[in-house]
C-alpha cells in the first residue's frame, strides 16, 4: 500500500469529505489527512505549514463550488505560491458545465502541479490519483 505523508481534502460537503476519507483508507496509509470547508481555510492551513516548515500535502482533493473562496480562487492563489514539491491536485465536482472543464484545462496548462479532473460521484480512488512517480517509471 502506498504511503503518503499528507493529504488535503477541501470540500464544504461533509458527506463527500467522509466518502473520500473512507476511500483513501482502502488504498493508502496516511497519518495526516486534513479537511477544510473552503479554499480560504485550506490556504490558511497551507501557509501555516509553510511558515512552520511542516510537510506540505502531496495530494489535494479540491471541490469547486464552495462559499467564501471557491476551488478556482484557491488554485489561482496556489499558482502564485512557491512550493518545494509538485502536488497532485484532484479537482472534484458535480458540475457537468463544459465551462468548468475548460477552466480546469486552462489551469492544467499554466500550473506547475499535476491536475486531475474527477466528476462526482466518486466510488474509488485510483493509484494515479495519488502518485505520478509510478507512472513515469
Amino acid at each position: 500500500m502506498k504511503k503518503l505523508n499528507s493529504i488535503f481534502i477541501i470540500d464544504d460537503d461533509p458527506i463527500t469529505v467522509f466518502g473520500i476519507k473512507k476511500m483513501l483508507k482502502a488504498i493508502t496509509i496516511c497519518e495526516d489527512i486534513s479537511d477544510y470547508k473552503n479554499g480560504k481555510q485550506a490556504m490558511e492551513g497551507l501557509k501555516e505549514r509553510l511558515q512552520h516548515g511542516y510537510p506540505c500535502p502531496e495530494v489535494i482533493f479540491l471541490d469547486i463550488n464552495m462559499p467564501i473562496m471557491d476551488g478556482w480562487e484557491f488554485l489561482e492563489e496556489l499558482v502564485n505560491i512557491k512550493l518545494p514539491e509538485r502536488i497532485i491536485i484532484n479537482v472534484i465536482t458535480s458540475s457537468i458545465d463544459p465551462i468548468d472543464y475548460k477552466k480546469w484545462n486552462d489551469f492544467r496548462l499554466r500550473c506547475w502541479h499535476y491536475l486531475n479532473f474527477k466528476n462526482k460521484p466518486l466510488y474509488k480512488i485510483e493509484a494515479t490519483d495519488l502518485s505520478r512517480v509510478h507512472l513515469a517509471s
Binding site: 458527506i15 466518502g19 473512507k22 463550488n65 458535480s94 462526482k120 466510488y123
Partner: peptide, 18 residues
C-alpha cells in the same frame, strides 16, 4: 439546479456503494 441536484444524487450513489 443541475449542479445542486447532481451533488446530492452523487452523494446518494457514493454512500449506497459504500
Amino acid at each position: 439546479v443541475s449542479h445542486n441536484l447532481r451533488s446530492h444524487t452523487a452523494n446518494f450513489s457514493m454512500l449506497l456503494d459504500f
